[in-house]
Design a protein around this nucleic acid. Structure first.
Lengths: 210, 210
DNA sequence: AGCGTTATAGGTCAATTGTATTATGTCAAA
DNA sequence: TTTGACATAATACAATTGACCTATAACGCT
């Protein structure tokens, strides 16, 4: 065997170069030649590790998902044993929002991923699967918190999970500097304030037709 | 003068054809030839109305923004005189989410717009401006509702506005069928339930470090 | 009727892109 | 040392794209 190279590692290096291209130049300028240049390798070498453009894209997008999950996992590990579910949910949300460089890179890849998923069944299934897995994690935390009496018992775990996931809508607002990071965190905390409000009467419909 | 043609109308027709291309084929297949074919005109004719690709894109994106604003305006008009602010906010949110064909088309254009805005200062400024205008409308409604005692007086209008805007995060969840339209509406109503909960003790920090 | 502006269609061109092919270098095993 | 699989590089190529250009038809004005 000749000069052995860790294929997986090389592929990740190239995928991260692709992220940088997407971040700096946009999805429009996402070409094999740009990625190769960003990675500091030749086009032929890139093709040696990825047989086609589609294969490279799929790999880079999956890697973005894995890295996001890894970040969330590390954040949760940093909370210690048996952390308060509120801190768990907060950590999950914070790691999903583009508040620091790593999260921003994967966030932009995810955005491009979703946009592509709308017209490609393959991509759509993968993106949906990743989101559903994330959803299941959040919902489990919510259900446990309800069982533990930390969230009002009359809360619907499905509805509350949906609301928590919807807060990823801050992504767009943050990227375009419509809201600042501090404001987004304040708003997230405000939502958690209300979610973890036990012993406070649940506000029913207030007479306004819906 | 020869066969007079309403340029503005023709440009809108072409822009809507562009929307359909984006919706059906994706941003990748967004070429002048595709748009011309979708619009049922020749490439030369398209170029007669738009001097460059960038000009066409800018027009189509601006039109998407205008149409969104128009939809919101019509929805608000349908609420009658002096509608309850809760219904106003609900209508705004519902019209921004991809819950019907029109909203879906403009929503996808907006997504592409934002993705492009991340690398183009010109586009970014326009997208940001549109979002800030929408934000100002929401915040005004929130402030008035607080002044009218419909929302708890100790609510921060800025924070509550941010939270309401973040609910556009349902867009991605809806497009990928992670949540169904009914569930999104339920969640929006749940959030409004809590926002318009006067006379209920505001839940302070519940002892969990943030 | 003649003229000039506009609408529309079609073609050309240089640049770019993904893919395929070929050539050269590298290094461990036989 | 020979061999052969792998790494790397360079080039070729067909297809596509946006921009540009030309030709013809349509129609209002004088």
């Amino acid at each position: 065997m000749p000069k052995q190279v860790d294929h997986q590692e090389r592929r990740e290096t190239i995928a991260r170069a692709l992220w940088r291209v997407v971040e700096k130049r946009g999805a429009t300028h996402l070409t094999l030649r740009e990625v190769a240049q960003e990675a500091g390798i030749s086009l032929g070498q890139l093709q040696h590790y990825f047989g086609s453009r589609a294969e490279l894209l799929a790999f880079a997008m999956d890697l973005a998902g894995e890295q996001s999950a890894l970040r969330v996992g590390r954040a949760l590990a940093g909370l210690g044993e048996r952390p308060h579910p509120r801190r768990v949910l907060r950590a999950m949300l914070v790691e999903m929002l583009p508040l620091h460089a790593d999260a921003r890179a994967t966030s932009r890849m995810s955005a491009a991923y979703v946009l592509e998923a709308l017209h490609d069944e393959q991509v759509r299934a993968r993106a949906r699967g990743a989101l559903l897995r994330g959803r299941a994690m959040v919902e489990q935390v919510v259900r446990q918190a309800i069982a533990d009496g930390l969230i009002a018992a009359d809360c619907d775990p499905v509805v509350e999970t949906d609301l928590l996931l919807a807060l990823t809508g801050f992504t767009t607002l943050l990227e375009l500097h419509v809201v600042e990071p501090a404001a987004a965190l304040t708003a997230v905390d405000r939502h958690l304030d209300r979610l973890f409000a036990v012993g406070v009467a649940r506000s029913g419909v207030d007479g306004v037709a819906r």
